[in-house]
Amino acid sequence: MYDRLQRYYAHAISDNHLHDANRLSLHLSENRELILDKTKLTEEEIVLLKTLFDGKEIQLVPEDSQDRLIYEWLIDEKQIDIGEIEKIISTPVRFIHLHINGELPEREEFAEAVQGLFPSAKTLLWKTIKEAVIIQQINSEFDEDLSVQSIIDTITADFFVKVSLYIGSPILACADIFERYEWETTLFSNVIKSFPRKSFFIEQDITNYFLLHNLPPSSLQMMNKMIKPVMNDKTLLESVKTYLECNMNASLAAKKLYMHRNTLQYRVDKFIEKTSIDIKQFPNAVAVYLMLVSFES
């Protein structure tokens, strides 16, 4: 049924960035959802589709007046005086971007739960039915040592959906918020297409994923040939990747991998011997790290 409706209403399928007033969400029996643009349908079609498929007009615009103003500024891109924004948002803040894969009927409960998992979260805004952004204040309640993977596991267990997160960089001035929001949104929307299995991204690594996303497949294949001698040794590659993520600090990497430092050092030396790439040198380490990240796509 989904495929037939998709073909028949191909002219009206939404890109998920419609304003609330123009969005029609059809809930189908096979637990799938189809979003249509009501401006491209007749009144008769809208009534019929609502009747047959439990059509709902999902409300994304917040009811709270302050949240609505931020929504109109960031998501609807309306011209709002920065002085009005400064009355609502106290910097420094950061964005936490969410992408949801799965059906989410309990939207309000989800928003409340997610905000509770991130201390000092000011508000959650729905960009589309699958995408949201949290504005988190960096204040006395802020916890920098949160386990992001634990948060994702909790959300998955409670709401039966797969969630991808991107935790952005601190923003020190309100004047920089809009530009940072647009940049981080662009980064996140691109990398989750190429790396759907990765559950979260942080400010330190997402640029690498973005660069890889924009490389042609032929370039990636050429890069990966350099580590062909060890490509099938997953344990070795995991150890080397962790070593590089720990800034080539063998003691820290060994601790994260729950192994003796000498064992890790042996694996690093083994990688160098088999590939002839000295990853103890920073330029080589950067190149190899990008190759290892590309395997996740």
Rank of each mutant, 00 (worst) to 15 (best):
Y258E: 15
Q149H: 12
L34K: 03
A173N: 12
I75C: 04
E184H: 03
L26I: 11
F295H: 12
D269P: 00
K40L: 13
A111C: 07
G55V: 07
N232Y: 11
V161Y: 07
A121V: 10
L290D: 04
H27Y: 14
V93D: 05
S150T: 05
L125I: 10
K255F: 15
H19C: 09
L24E: 01
L211Y: 11
N224M: 14
F282K: 15
H17F: 14
E112T: 11
I192Q: 03
N249H: 11
L290G: 09
S189H: 09
S65D: 10
L172F: 14
N101V: 12
K40A: 15
N284R: 01
T123Q: 11
R7F: 12
V286I: 13
I85G: 03
I88V: 15
F160E: 11
S219N: 05
V286T: 09
I13P: 13
E131V: 00
K198A: 03
E45F: 09
P92L: 08
S251G: 11
V240T: 09
N224L: 14
A175I: 09
L212R: 05
S25Y: 04
F210P: 02
D76E: 12
E30V: 06
E33S: 12
I35Q: 13
T156L: 06
D176W: 03
L28H: 05
I152C: 00
I88Q: 09
S199P: 02
I192E: 01
V93R: 06
E63C: 02
M222G: 03
D64N: 14
Q79K: 15
H19Y: 08
Q281M: 05
K256T: 09
P92S: 08
H27E: 07
W73M: 01
F95C: 06
T185A: 11
E72C: 05
K198G: 06
E141A: 10
T275G: 01
F271Y: 04
G168W: 13
D54Y: 14
L41G: 00
G116V: 09
D3W: 15
T39H: 11
I80P: 03
S164G: 05
D76W: 08
A10D: 14
A10S: 15
M226A: 13
S147P: 02
K234I: 13
P92W: 13
T91L: 06
F201M: 00
A21L: 06
K225F: 14
P196I: 02
L290P: 01
A254W: 10
L292G: 04
T128A: 08
D81W: 15
P217Y: 05
I58H: 11
Q137C: 10
M248Q: 15
F142V: 05
G55D: 02
N224E: 04
L124A: 08
A113N: 02
A111T: 12
I88H: 07
